[in-house]
Amino acid sequence: MSGKMRFEVSGKAKNMTAELQAKNHTIIIDEPAEMGGADKGQDPLSNMLASLAGCENVIANMVAKEMMFRFKQV
Rank of each mutant, 00 (worst) to 15 (best):
K12H: 13
G11R: 08
G36Y: 03
K23N: 15
I28V: 14
K72E: 01
E56P: 01
D43G: 13
N57D: 05
N47H: 07
P44G: 10
E19C: 05
M67S: 15
K65F: 03
I27M: 06
L20G: 04
M35T: 12
A13Y: 03
G41A: 13
Q21F: 07
P32T: 08
E19F: 07
L45N: 13
I29R: 06
T26L: 04
F69C: 15
V9F: 03
E8L: 12
M16I: 02
N15I: 06
K12E: 15
K12T: 15
H25P: 03
A60N: 09
M16L: 12
G3H: 00
V63H: 05
A64D: 09
P32C: 10
L45P: 09
M5N: 05
K40A: 13
E66C: 08
L49D: 07
F7D: 02
S10K: 07
S10C: 06
K12W: 11
G37R: 05
N47W: 13
M48G: 05
M35C: 12
L49P: 07
E8H: 09
G3L: 00
T26N: 00
G36W: 05
D30F: 02
M67K: 15
G41S: 14
L20I: 02
M1I: 01
L52E: 07
K23I: 11
R6D: 08
G36P: 04
G37C: 07
G41M: 12
K14H: 01
K12Y: 14
G41K: 14
Q73I: 01
M68Q: 13
M1D: 00
D30M: 03
I29V: 13
T17S: 12
E56F: 13
Q21P: 00
E34Q: 08
L52V: 13
K65H: 05
S2T: 13
A22K: 00
T17H: 13
A50H: 04
R70V: 04
I29G: 08
E66Y: 06
V9N: 08
H25V: 05
E34G: 02
A33R: 05
A60D: 10
E8Y: 09
K14V: 10
K23L: 14
R70M: 02
E31C: 14
M1N: 00
L49Y: 09
F71H: 00
A50D: 07
K4S: 09
S10D: 04
Q73L: 01
P44Q: 03
A60L: 09
A50K: 07
A38C: 14
E31R: 15
V74S: 02
S46R: 15
E31Q: 15
M5E: 08
V58H: 12
A33D: 02
A53E: 04
A50C: 08
V74Y: 01
P44A: 04
T26F: 01
M35L: 15
E56R: 04
E31T: 15
R6G: 01
M68T: 03
F7W: 11
